[in-house]
Amino acid sequence: MEMQQIKFYQTGTFTVGNRLLDADQRSVQANMERTNSLNSGHRACQGCGEALGARYAIDAAMRAANNQVIACNATGCLEVFSTPYPETSWQIPWIHSLFGNAAAVATGVAAAMKVKGRRDVRVIAQGGDGGTTDIGFGCLSGMFERNDDVLYICYDNEAYMNTGVQRSSATPPAARTATTMALGPEPGNAFGQGKNVPLIAMAHGIPYVATASVAYLRDLEEKVKRAMSLSGARYIHILVPCPLGWGAQPSDTIKLARLAVETGLFPLFEAEHGEVVGSTRIRRRVPVEEYLKPQKRFAHLFGKTPAVGTLARIQEMADRNIRKYRLIDERRHG
C-alpha cells in the first residue's frame, strides 16, 4: 500500500481526523457527511468493537464505491444487533441468510449484478470469526477459489460471542471461553497450530488479503480502499475487541485493539496475489502482558503464581510475528 508521506501534523494520521490535513488526506470517518452505514440505535453492547469495525469498513467501502454497495451478512452478533425486527440499523442494501453462507450469498449477488450489467455495484460479505474461520469456511474458500468479485470482511473477536463466548478456531491460546474453561493443568484454550485465515486466503492466490484493526483507522480505510479498487476475491480480517467476551472495560476497546498490534500478537499486513506486500510497523512495542492483563479471559495467567511459561509462549508468538512480518523498523530500533 502506498501510504502518503505527510509533514508533521500534530497527530498526523493517528487520530480520526486532523483539521490541519487537506481534505483528501482525512479519514472517511472524519467526514461530517459519512454514510453511517450502520446507524445509531443498534443493540450492540457498550463499547462493541465489531459495531465500530463494521461502520469503519462499510463506510470506507461506500466511499470507494460511490455508495453502490450491497452487503451480505453471516449470522452472528453483527447480524443480531443490527437487524432485530422491526428495526434495522443498516442504511445500505443488506441481506442476512445463514451462519455459514455469507460468502456464497455474496457470490450470488455479485453474479446477479454482473448479469444485470450493474458493474458499478460492489458486493461485500461480512461475518464474525465463527462465521468465517469455522462454519463459513467452506463457502469462503469456494468464493476465493473461483475469484468471485466479492470483498469478504471478517470481524474477528476471537470467539462465538453471540451464543455466549464459546471457543472458535480464532480463539487465541490460553484464552478462557465458556468451552475452554480456566481449569486444569493447562487452563484456557489449547496451544494449537492456529488457523490463520489471512494466510489461508493468501494461499488461494486471490488479488488482495489484509489484516486491520479498529485502532488503526487510516490503515483500515486504506486497506478497504485498496481492496475496493481491485476486482475478484478479496479478504480483510479485522480484529475487533469484545468487551463482554474478553472481560474488558467497554472503554478499553480501542486500547486493546492497539495493544494487540503493538505487542506483535496481531500483525497488520497486506498481501496481493499471495505475496505479502507490506506490513504496518509497530510504533511503541510493548510486552504481551500489557495486552493480556486488562482482559479477564487471561486472568488465570496472572494469579498468585503467574503462568510464566504460558506468558513466555505467547510472547514467543508475538516475537515470531515481529520477525516474520518485519513489524519493527530495524533502522530505528537497531
Partner: peptide
C-alpha cells in the same frame, strides 16, 4: 446459498 444471493439481487 449462491442462488439465494442471486435471487435476492
Amino acid at each position: 446459498s449462491v442462488a439465494i444471493g442471486a435471487s435476492a439481487a
